[in-house]
């Protein structure tokens, strides 16, 4: 069950782990708890030693919140994206039971479509897959598509088109299936 409230693993927890790892002299860190698996390595080509069934390939994580936090820190993370990307609690309207939030992987301007006038990436009610692109975030003319990271139905689009979103802000609410 992908209930974020029960897990209580936040993006901050992950950051703290990464910080500890960076300040250590370890080559690798591999942690498993509660269906969550984190693998940190100083070897950019390293992959998870043992991929859990639910996990997605690390390449698919490139644009998800957690992967964006980690990659420039010279560590690679592979984990269940459902758990990591959407676990962080935060302000704003509560997320309905059984639904999870896709959060902003970085601060930037939120766009619902790849370019002005083009069809939107997703609409409410739509079924999406793990690799479905759901929006675009722009920082100083650098546009980065954001992937869902999980399979489910779009229930709500919270961020407003063309508006700035802060790091970790709730963008889209998904009901996983």
């Amino acid at each position: 069950m992908a209930s974020s409230e029960k897990r209580k693993v936040t993006a901050e927890d992950i950051e703290n782990l990464i910080e500890i790892f960076k300040q250590s002299s370890w080559d690798e860190m591999h942690l498993e708890a509660d269906g969550l698996e984190i693998f940190l390595s100083n070897d950019p080509t390293a992959t998870t030693p043992r991929t859990p069934a639910a996990a997605v390939p690390s390449a698919a994580m490139t644009n998800s919140a957690v992967a964006n936090v980690v990659v420039p820190a010279a560590a690679s993370v592979a984990a269940s994206s459902t758990t990591l990307s959407h676990a962080a609690g935060g302000a704003g309207a509560p997320i309905p039971d059984g639904q999870v939030a896709i959060r902003a992987p970085n601060l930037g301007t939120f766009y619902r479509a790849p370019k002005p006038g083009a069809p939107t990436y997703i609409e409410v009610g739509q079924q999406i897959e793990v690799t479905t692109e759901v929006c675009l975030i722009e920082v100083m003319k650098l546009f980065t598509p954001v992937q869902s990271g999980l399979r489910g139905i779009v229930r709500e689009i919270r961020a407003r088109d063309g508006q700035m979103v802060e790091f970790d802000a709730v963008l889209i609410i998904i009901e996983p299936n």
């Binding site: 910080e19 936090v69 601060l107 301007t109 790091f167």
Partner: peptide, 26 residues
């Protein structure tokens, strides 16, 4: 207050693009 990034300063306080983007957008 605007949250510009995670705790790691490289992804927050040390990212000039994020800072200027935030200045423009706010």
């Amino acid at each position: 207050t605007v949250v510009i990034g995670p705790a790691a300063s490289r992804l927050s306080y040390l990212d000039a693009n994020l800072l200027v983007h935030t200045a423009l957008q706010t």
